[in-house]
Nucleic acid binder design. Structure first.
Lengths: 234, 234
DNA sequence: CTCGCGGTTTGATGCGGATCAAGGAACCCC
DNA sequence: GGGGTTCCTTGATCCGCATCAAACCGCGAG
């Protein structure tokens, strides 16, 4: 992984929205871009801060999250290498970030200038289209999250999350959790204790083997059936 | 309200994304548009159906919702006159609607052709920008919903919903619920019984008066404090 | 006017998951 | 290698809300 202290063409190319744009626009974005290297627990922005940058993660890991007045935290998304975020914030009426962002690991981020992006988009229908596609997809994902929170219990949310993860990593028999269990619990809107218990159940039922952050799928059929039919007693 | 059986310029003008576009694009959209007049309980589309249309509500009311395998329903949004919906679906990778849509009242909808919209957008940076703004805003709202579901209890969700409604209707002392309590409960992801009980509490505490779908705010300060500090015993 | 039905309210009960508490396990730094 | 910190697990208890049940109300149809 390239840890250069300046943004490169390669960063642009790997960005889901900025890749394949006309040279002039790319050049303008690149000139105004910065590399940020937050340490673990560094806060990049708070919800409500005015939007100056949007980001591409080159390496490391971050969380986007909301806090309740009592200090409870709901993780909206975990960000890893290759993911971009906060593009939508650039276009919100309020002009502010809707979530907090904190580094979970020492990370390397490319920060692109929000205002320049807005301006450049006016002259690039291609980039507009990419962005619209990205936003629509993200909207669909959020609707999926809302359904999961409203209609599924803790066990079901965990199972579906595991199956999605496993699928993204190529449906291997064995795969890794992308983060600590505490943060995964935050993402699924359950307590770490509950996540631990669900893992224990699935393990006792002979469906999974959990060893640290390594998950081995022992019985894919029953896992899939559990995701629909709701059955763990068998 | 105009119930003409054909779409008009006025429909375009009142659309959040299509208004103020160049004449040629507008003309093209109008020619391909239709008027739908679903009766109560008519289903406009299911989640997973291929996207042919996106909509503007001229009158009536609809629900966008998801169903669990057990038949439980979570309402994602209630749509009323002037609201547009399903634009994002036009740009999703899957090419399918992410939610179900059913009319709650006899309604009048303008249906715009999805494919023509995609094509026309290529030549209209203005429309792109409007759409991007709209999608970003909707994304922020969905994140707000996720926070509410994860971090707030039933009472808090109801209170915040009421305050938002009241604000949208001009902060009058008295305002109306936009739908039956059953559907409002579905929107807030609680059962009708629970909604009824929360109303009873707020009424007993002297904060509200609930008469059918008419809400009267008796003590706005305490309502606002309850939305933050969590106190109803006083 | 009356009947019937969906929406709403109120009460009783049960369960899922949060919370509280404490014990283990892995990792880092000295 | 020892001690501390953070993460994870397991157990006991509690509470919010769902669920089940029943009565009530308002409204449209006949």
């Amino acid at each position: 992984m390239n840890d250069a202290l300046f943004p490169t063409q390669a960063d642009l190319q790997s960005h889901p929205v900025l890749s394949d744009l006309d040279a002039e626009f790319q050049q303008a974005m690149l000139e105004r871009a910065r590399v940020f290297t937050p340490a673990r627990d560094d806060i990049l922005f708070h919800a409500g801060d005015p939007v100056e940058w949007f980001f591409l993660c080159r390496s490391g890991q971050l969380k986007l999250y909301r806090l309740s007045p009592e200090g409870n935290e709901k993780i909206i998304a975990l960000i890893g290498p290759g993911s971009s975020f906060a593009e939508a914030a650039v276009f919100m009426d309020s002009g502010t970030y809707p979530v907090n962002c904190t580094a979970l690991q020492p990370s390397v981020l490319i920060a692109f200038d929000a205002e320049h992006f807005r301006e450049g988009l006016r002259h690039s229908p291609d980039a507009c289209f990419r962005l619209i596609g990205k936003l629509s997809q993200r909207l669909r994902n959020r609707v999926g999250d809302i359904e999961a929170l409203s209609l599924q219990n803790a066990q079901l949310r965990v199972i579906n999350y595991l199956m999605r993860l496993n699928h993204e990593q190529g449906d291997q028999a064995s795969f890794r959790l992308p983060s600590s269990k505490k943060h995964i619990a935050g993402l699924l809107a359950i307590q770490p204790e509950t996540l631990s218990r669900v893992f224990a159940q699935l393990q006792d039922a002979g469906i999974l083997r959990v060893k640290g952050s390594e998950i081995e799928v022992l019985d894919r059929d029953r896992l899939k059936r559990a995701a629909e039919g709701q059955e763990l007693t068998a």
